[in-house]
């Protein structure tokens, strides 16, 4: 057990020094924080408000708050769809290409542990950055203050969404063993899926599974056509299950990979 802890610490240390050096982490935090503040600033352009019609102020604040929250979260999705596959490919596929995976696997490390740890870090980094940015956007916004459970739902959906995107790109990385292929494949696949899910007539449940973040957001904002909490939770569960399956398949393939 002590030995396993030592190995875990050593591997985490190597991973962070190898892949998460300046400016990767800083860029992640920076881009999400910037996004949150830009969205706070962009609220001023909401058209309902007019200084000559101060009676619309309350309506403006309400709509602006919704817009703020929407704008804060919605671009996260597209940013995550872009950044997570690139990060996963860099961390999982690239070592196959440059040979460092062979070097690390000559030391006593289980392949499943290696892959799971890499996935964990690629989820934690953007997940933390996106969560902090979301909380900042909510804090510095005005009008709407989602309840704790609503914030928890949004944060949870961000993490599940990141896990889904990471799991698919992990599978692509393990199969292709090429960083460019898996990054491009991951981005194109997720953009296509997210766009497809937005099409009219796309099955609701499938839409929530593909994009639980969007479903959670629609639920928090409420209004006509907002999904029920149960639908959102089904979407989250479905996305989690999908990620679980992709990760299990990735591990199984990685165990049999020729290094």
């Amino acid at each position: 057990m002590v030995q396993q802890k030592s190995r875990t610490r050593a591997f985490l240390s190597l991973e962070i020094k190898s892949f998460y050096r300046f400016p990767i982490v800083e860029c992640f935090v920076g881009v999400f924080t910037l996004l949150a503040f830009l969205n706070v600033l962009s609220v001023g352009s909401v058209t309902d408000f007019d200084v000559e019609s101060p009676e619309n102020l309350a309506g403006f604040l309400q709509s602006a708050a919704s817009a703020l929250l929407y704008l804060s979260v919605f671009p996260f999705m597209y940013l995550l769809v872009l950044l997570v596959p690139v990060l996963v490919s860099l961390v999982i596929a690239k070592p196959f290409e440059d040979g460092t995976i062979r070097t690390i696997l000559t030391h006593p490390i289980k392949r499943s542990f290696l892959l799971l740890t890499k996935i964990l870090i690629t989820v934690v980094l953007p997940g933390t950055a996106a969560t902090v940015a979301l909380l900042l956007a909510i804090q510095f916004g005005f009008g709407i203050q989602p309840s704790v459970s609503q914030v928890a739902l949004l944060v949870g959906s961000i993490w599940v969404f990141i896990l889904s995107v990471a799991s698919v790109t992990t599978l692509l990385s393990v199969i292709s063993k090429k960083a460019a292929t898996s990054a491009t494949g991951g981005v194109v696949l997720w953009y296509s899926m997210v766009l497809l899910a937005d099409l009219y007539g796309f099955p609701e449940t499938a839409r929530h599974v593909i994009n639980p973040l969007s479903a959670a957001l629609a639920y928090v904002l409420g209004g006509d056509g907002a999904p029920l909490l149960a639908d959102v939770l089904v979407g989250l569960l479905g996305a989690l299950s999908m990620a679980f399956v992709f990760i299990v398949v990735s591990i199984a393939l990685f165990e049999r990979s020729e290094i």
Binding site: Q3, S6, R7, R9, A10, F11, S13, L14, K17, H107, P108, I109
Partner: peptide
């Protein structure tokens, strides 16, 4: 030195 230290920690 950092790399060799980390590798050494893989072994008991």
């Amino acid at each position: 030195l950092e790399y060799v230290r980390d590798v050494v920690r893989f072994y008991g």
